[in-house]
Design a binder for these strands. Structure first.
Length: 940
RNA sequence: GCCGAGAUGGUGGAAUAGGUAGACACGCAAGACUUAAAAUCUUGUGGACGCAAGUCCGUGCGGGUUCGAUUCCCGCUCUUGGUACCA
């Protein structure tokens, strides 16, 4: 073949790999295992853009590399197939989301195959497949059937809870994530009916139904998780979200807070992801204090991280949802309070956020007593207090908390200074709440922050005013969605109590419905299903699971995807153990990556998995952003203007560039490397503007063109900045695309896509081809023995490639290959011994061309079965080293010495050289530093 | 506000343990081949001054440590990701 015909070669090898199942992974082997996982995609209708494969290419390179290194590599792919867009589409068109999803998956698969990935497709999974969600439902049932015993610090079957009740009642019971509200004795328990016992147990389980304040999105007709809400609107669609109380399934992730936090130390994940999880979990140490209500036996419980400032409390703030609110509100204040509560509940999340700085609140008319000094403290309602955190009540210390200070100032409440010293003045910008010494505080006076904390907790504890406590910001995860396209929750109701289905009846198949919308009475779509009942006639749960259910455990299903009996067989788990490298976007830091750790830990408690964390190493690939291209149209006329001429045009016509012009997005695929689009293409693209007048320029070819402004933005259809990998593959080939995506820069970094530089990698592959075939297509590889220079080039390359891939640096090997090729071309090397090794180390990056040339030099088995060449130090050894010679740190010349020459000899001889004579100007050196085979520095 | 990541030529980026800054690639310029263009090949390409040899400056800014700093330390600026009334 004279020319490198990439399309022909790539299609040939993709077919070969598929037909011969080259990448099928065996579970029975002596080889060490290596599990490389990509975060599986949601198959959206838009298909893949050029940013999606970035991570897949990196993991594919790693997978192919590890195979060459003798590992049994598991490198699977599947689809997170339940999700909102398919359902929204179903609502609009009436088409079943399964059909849309199927179509989208087919498209994804086609695009993925086009890039030559080495996935073991026989292990493909889809979360929407009943064979898969059978086990998602099974895990839910396990969660329902377990509680968290804080004493053994693990999940235990509900039977051990019953045993405890039977013997001790609630005495000495410590349940993770549960505050026991109603205590009872063993005798109380024994007197209950079975149904009553069951009812009590419901609130202790890891999956529980509870009235929950939720993020309700009316437009989507569903509840959203906290992380599905961004800036007060839904992440998908951008619809308003309001707070609403509804009975919801919850998963008790809070039981695992401490372990989720601590075990972060076991994994090699980026600090930023770990920090995000730490912040999300939000552990804070402090104290719970009971303030007696004036004229009542009731207590008001608050949580504070600053018990040391308790003598500075001048008011209490409770949330509008506070449970004792009816007792607290005095007749005289009733009207005002009602008005306030109504007003706050009407405010959407968005308003609340945008009005963070507006201070609002209302006095209840009640007082409580500071137990330490018996001062009377007014109780206020304020919407800055959150119902879900702490106790829903805050002791306010205006002198040491900025928010309390602003509130007190606004409502003219007293302020008592309890800190003295530098940086203790809250009105000053250098205010530090932990600075200074305590004053006005009885037994705490004179103490500094930490000592006062310890002392305060000690006194509060001994006087039984409260106790030291650790609080977490993380809440239980709401697990119900009022949607159709998700896993049905395997629960039925009998006498209004929820029961899980027997495992033998799984999967509970998603039923057919006539419409995908909620019912007229506001029930979820599943309520439309005919006969949505158990065999016995009990009503089935109509909520479905959230998007993250399937993704919380999918990585285990790849180990045993066809197993109909078990979620995955124990043998296979014991062999594969954990994911060695997990690659995906950092945007999943507090969603998927936290939930999946939670489910994993639960499965660990059940003895189903052998390790504490499922992903040893996590890499977050950066986002590939789009380059949007803009031209401008004058708002009040039909004139389209080049970006280049915009300013001049605006000036001439006395217009403002910001207000009088409308930006028009131009398809980036029509814009050339100079940022120009021809008038002809523009008129085709925006036929509605074909009769407009244009302010254009003329390019080098004499065409009329519009120059565009660039804007780096997220790739999206509406911005016409999406680049499809298929187009790149068509034009340059998959191998070039793979090389180029890596060549763009470090994997973790975000960067805009720009096709301009792709020629470099494309040229590289054509030059590589020339090493094997000359211009007339003659095969020019020889069997001559390699010389020292050639071996040195090869082994230098082997070393660097190996080191770089091992440290997940995927961009630097590309330039190493280029350097290697340049050097081999200079050496006119066409020797088989050298070239075949080069092909092996290159094959993870550019597998198609590597296979083709591998076959051309006479191999009959796929290059995937080759062995990565062993690096040999001996080929790199040098007899001489050219030292850079610097004077006072500035390099002034070079001097060669034998590599085994001693430092002392060099120090002596350097003073006899010409460079030395020139730069020392006859003066003696103060100091001569010789770093062996590195550098010589002479200090004058 | 708080937490994290980053800033290197015209551009993407390299420098792995404090040791020749700018590898590799794009772009650009000149040349070869060609009737011409494309492709390919050769050479040059951080900035300033200079015919040149060369000199000075140079890794966001200001300091420091060191024989030597893109790399370590202190203080800023900007960009970017996350988070936000968390008591």
């Amino acid at each position: 073949m004279a020319e490198y015909q990439f399309r022909k070669i790539e299609q040939k090898w993709q077919k070969y790999w598929a037909e011969n199942q080259i990448f099928k992974t065996s579970d029975q082997t002596e080889k060490p295992k290596y599990y490389i996982l990509d975060m599986f995609p949601y198959p959206s209708g838009a298909g893949l853009h050029v940013g999606h494969p970035l991570g897949y290419i990196a993991t594919d390179i790693l997978a192919r590399y590890k195979r060459l290194k003798g590992f049994n590599v598991l490198h699977p792919m599947g689809y997170d197939a339940f999700g909102l867009p398919a359902e929204q589409y179903a609502i609009q068109t009436g088409q079943h989301p399964a059909i849309t999803t199927e179509k989208n998956i087919a498209r994804y698969r086609e695009q993925l195959d086009n890039i030559g990935f080495s996935y073991d497709w026989s292990r493909e999974i889809r979360t929407s497949n009943p064979d898969f969600y059978k086990f998602t439902q099974w895990i839910f049932i396990q969660l329902f059937n377990h509680w968290y015993n804080k004493k053994s610090d693990k999940a235990e079957p509900i039977s051990t809870l019953f045993a405890h009740f039977e013997q001790y009642g609630t005495e000495s019971l410590s349940v993770g994530g549960v505050e026991i509200e109603k205590h009872f004795s063993a005798n109380d328990w024994k007197s209950l009916s079975e149904e009553e016992k069951y009812k009590i147990s419901l609130s202790f389980r890891l999956a529980y139904l509870a009235p929950t304040t939720v993020n309700w999105c009316a437009e989507l007709g569903t509840v959203l998780a906290n992380e599905e809400v961004k800036d007060g609107v839904s992440e998908r669609g951008g619809f308003p979200v309001v707070k609403k109380e509804m009975p919801q399934w919850n998963l008790r992730i809070t039981a695992y807070s401490e372990r989720l936090l601590n075990d972060l130390s076991l994994v090699d994940w980026s600090e930023s992801i770990k920090d995000q999880q730490k912040n999300w979990i939000g552990k804070s140490k402090g104290c719970e204090i009971n303030f007696p209500l004036e004229g009542s036996t009731q207590m008001m419980k608050v949580f504070t991280t600053r018990p040391d400032t308790i003598f500075g409390v001048t008011y209490m703030a409770i949330c509008p949802e506070y449970d004792l609110i009816d007792i607290l509100v005095k007749e005289s204040q009733k009207k005002e309070v009602e008005k306030y509560i109504h007003a706050t509940s009407q405010r959407s999340e968005r308003e609340r956020m945008s009005n963070v700085k507006t201070i609002s609140g209302v006095f209840t008319g009640s007082y409580c007593i500071n137990p330490l000094n018996n001062e009377k403290i007014p109780i206020w309602i304020a919407d800055y207090v959150l119902a879900g955190y702490g106790t829903g009540a805050v002791m306010a210390v205006p002198s040491s908390d900025i928010r309390d200070y602003q509130f007190a100032k606004h409502f003219h409440l007293p302020i008592i200074q309890v800190l003295q010293g530098a940086k203790t003045d809250i009105t000053q910008p250098d205010f530090d709440p932990k600075a200074g010494k305590i004053i006005n505080s009885d037994f705490l006076n004179g103490l500094t922050y930490q000592a006062a904390m310890d002392k305060a907790i000690e006194v509060i504890d001994t006087k039984k005013f409260g106790k030291g406590k650790v609080n977490f910001k993380i809440r239980d995860s709401i697990f119900s969605r009022q949607r159709y396209w998700g896993e049905p929750i395997p629960v039925y109701f009998k006498n209004d109590l929820p029961y899980t289905l027997p495992e033998s009846e799984l999967p509970l198949i998603l039923p057919a419905v006539d419409k995908y919308k909620p019912t007229e009475t506001g029930e979820p779509p599943l309520a439309r299903a005919k006969n949505w009942k158990t065999k016995e006639g009990h009503k089935l749960e109509t909520n479905t699971m959230p998007g993250w259910a399937g993704s919380s455990w999918y990585f285990y299903r790849y180990l045993d995807p066809k197993n109909a009996e078990e979620w995955v067989s124990q043998d296979k788990i014991n062999y594969w153990k954990e994911v060695d490298v997990y690659l995906g976007g950092a945007e999943h830091a507090t969603g998927h990556l936290l939930y999946s750790r939670f489910w994993h830990k639960f499965l660990f408690d059940l003895g189903k998995v052998p390790v504490k964390e499922y992903a040893a190493k996590l890499i977050n690939q950066g986002m590939i952003q789009g380059r949007s291209c803009l031209v401008f149209k004058e708002r009040n006329s039909n004139i389209v203007i080049c970006y280049q001429q915009l300013e001049a045009y605006a000036k001439e016509n006395v217009l403002h560039t910001e207000t009088d012009f409308q930006a028009i997005y131009v398809d980036v695929n029509l814009v050339d490397s100079n940022g120009q689009i021809t008038l002809k293409d523009f008129k085709n693209f925006r036929s509605d503007l074909k009769d407009a007048k244009f302010e254009f320029s003329i390019n080098a070819k004499g065409e009329q063109v519009l120059t565009c402004q660039y804007l780096v933005e997220k790739m999206s259809k509406s911005k016409y900045n999406v680049v499809n990998p298929d187009d790149v593959v068509e034009k340059y080939g998959a191998d070039t695309l793979r090389l180029y995506e890596m060549f763009l820069g470090p994997l973790e970094q975000s960067k805009p896509w720009n096709t301009n530089n792709i020629d470099g990698t494309s040229r590289f592959l054509r030059r590589l081809w020339r090493l094997f075939f000359d211009e007339s297509g003659n095969f020019v590889v020889t069997n001559n023995e390699a010389n020292a220079a050639e071996l040195k080039v090869l082994h230098k390359t082997i070393k660097r490639i190996e080191e770089d891939i091992e440290r997940y640096s995927f961009n630097t090997p590309v330039s190493t290959f280029m350097v290697c090729l340049n050097e081999l071309i200079d050496l006119k090397c066409h020797k088989k011994d050298i070239l075949e090794n080069l092909l092996i180390i290159l094959s993870p990056y550019s597998p198609h061309i590597a296979e083709e040339l591998w076959q051309a030099i006479g191999h009959t088995k796929s290059i995937s079965y080759a062995t990565f060449p062993k690096f040999e130090e001996k080929y790199l050894s040098e007899s001489e080293f050219e030292y850079p010679v610097s004077f006072n740190g500035k390099v002034r010349g070079k001097q060669k010495y034998a590599t085994d020459y001693s430092v002392a000899q060099i120090e002596k001889e350097i003073q006899e050289t010409e460079i030395y004579a020139k730069w020392s100007e006859g003066k003696p050196a103060k100091k001569i530093i010789v770093v062996h085979n590195k550098i010589i520095n002479i200090v004058m």
